[in-house]
Design a protein around this nucleic acid. Sequence first.
DNA 1: CGGTAGTTTGAATTTCATCAAAATTTGTGG
DNA 2: CCACAAATTTTGATGAAATTCAAACTACCG
Lengths: 235, 235
Amino acid sequence: MLYGQANDSSLPEVCKLCIRHKDCFAANITNYNGYSIQIHSHVLQMNEHVFHRGDEQKAIYVVKSGSLKSYISNKKGDEQVLNFHVPGDILSIEGLTQNNHESSAIALQTSTLCVLPIVQLETMLENLLPPWLISFTMKKLNQDIRNQYLLGKRNAKSRLAAFLLEIAADYKAIGYSDREFNLTMSREDIGNYLGIAPETVSRTFTRMQKVGVLKMERRHITILDGEQLGLLAVS
Amino acid sequence: MLYGQANDSSLPEVCKLCIRHKDCFAANITNYNGYSIQIHSHVLQMNEHVFHRGDEQKAIYVVKSGSLKSYISNKKGDEQVLNFHVPGDILSIEGLTQNNHESSAIALQTSTLCVLPIVQLETMLENLLPPWLISFTMKKLNQDIRNQYLLGKRNAKSRLAAFLLEIAADYKAIGYSDREFNLTMSREDIGNYLGIAPETVSRTFTRMQKVGVLKMERRHITILDGEQLGLLAVS
DNA sequence: CGGTAGTTTGAATTTCATCAAAATTTGTGG
DNA sequence: CCACAAATTTTGATGAAATTCAAACTACCG
């Protein structure tokens, strides 16, 4: 179900390490629709990085044993854990069509990875699939990461600030104003989404208005000091 | 119900609504690598559902105007908002290769969607891409939804309970025990990921032990009452 | 065996959820 | 268009939960 079917047992040694080597995808990865992808395995010791944020992305990785975490650092230098990864998980697939890694990944214990160079994968995708399907999938994967980042915040103020900045960025991306817009959802929905009570949403917005960061009239919002709002998001 | 809104001649009209019509996928969607996909546009009024959880999944959707939210309900009947969607967002792509919708989606205001029937898309993917690439991508997309759900919890107890159940499910999926395992990450990492202080993680674990839900020895954990743990996760 | 990192526990403080009620907006029918 | 009802939002008071700072404790490593 989650894995491809294997027929060719002669192929990679790598598969022997795979936690599900009996139906490991690697058995049929070396050749597909005329695209040949050379995979190899890689062993990482505890606290060793698979990749750092900003590194050129050369591969995606499948966890075969051990465990890892992926994280990013905010402007203040604080770390935000995005996810933990156990055998069977795939790392960095969200960057398949991007040049650089958006996050960092580090081994929590000795771990084995299956390394899939992306050059051939990218070519395969670009030739076989319509561009919109690729870009929407990648967009979705990256959006999920941003949400993870958003929801890892400690307090209501940070979450709401990050939430507003997220909405603003969304609107900006489609050519709308990122300083003045309407929230189309209720306070209750916002609170539900962010894991805080609707009353806290209301109070926090009120406080933000008092310090002059933004102006709200019911659901119409004007961001007065975006920089300050950014600081609230990471505080 | 969503079908039949558009016919062939309406295709260009659809593009006019698209917020990015200059590089709108619709321009080349009708034919790609021999696969022809008939798209339609659909207008939803406020509080109208795009789909309900459990509905047969017949399409994926692109938001062209308006806004929506997606959500799921837990066993107690409480709603958990997973995401808000603005123009340019794609809905339900995580279910592309599944039969039924995992979540529900509802319009927050009058909204226009672009409807892409998945039958041809699925066939296209299955024929063109290696199965492991499809399955890993879909797995990742669904995993992110579960994380979103996890982090929407209100208090530390619920989050930690859901977190443990998540890990347990992960281990079970790869054939390990889901009742007894090692947490490979520090309390600090757990707290960082879940948006709570490491001390709170520690205290909450201690409390869970006192009520007999689980047993912990440093990072080795034994789940004694999985049912009770499930109740904590939704409380 | 001592040092270090990670974890637990305690006490004080802050933040948040909850309950309640008031204020405001929205929707509906006359 | 107005009046009334319903829903949403704001505000207040209170108790509960979580953070913070601090210190003690424990496993782990050279």
